[in-house]
């Protein structure tokens, strides 16, 4: 009984932090002023948030299913591999489309 309480606490903590991080990513997507800054929210906060949520589900099913259940790890792995790739492709597409940036951005992009 004691152990299952602690497992539940760990799962609850992982799920809550995960969904809060995903919410922060979406807040960043909504409130930041230009495209390149918006890119930061979903690539980092949302990826980590969903990653930790999935690991919470892994802990939950491992604790009450039959034996260890690790296949949720695959989703986390996949998200962490693909997030930089899609961010890179979107940034390239945005530079190609000459999406505007806010004026105080330092540095410049090279011609596409």
């Amino acid at each position: 009984m004691d152990i299952s309480f602690w497992v539940d606490a760990v799962v609850a903590a992982l799920i809550l932090t995960g969904s809060l991080f995903a919410l922060i990513g979406s807040i960043g997507l909504w409130k930041l002023p230009d495209f390149f800054m918006r890119l930061h929210g979903p690539t980092k906060a949302t990826t980590l948030g969903v990653g930790s949520l999935v690991i919470g589900s892994l802990v939950y099913f491992s604790s009450r299913g039959e034996g260890l259940s690790l296949h949720e790890l695959l989703i986390t792995l996949f998200l962490f591999i693909t997030a930089p790739v899609s961010a890179h492709l979107l940034a390239k597409a945005a530079m190609h489309q000459r999406v505007g940036r806010i004026e105080k951005t330092k540095g410049r992009i090279w011609p596409q």
Partner: peptide, 30 residues
């Protein structure tokens, strides 16, 4: 701009994954 919309769709996809996982937890189904 179009890239903003694609980024929003991509994030929606990832959030949908989270929602599905949460539903699986809620119904205790693998």
């Amino acid at each position: 701009d179009l890239p903003d919309r694609i980024l929003a769709l991509d994030t929606l996809y990832i959030n949908a994954i989270a929602l599905i996982i949460l539903l699986g937890l809620y119904l205790a189904s693998d």
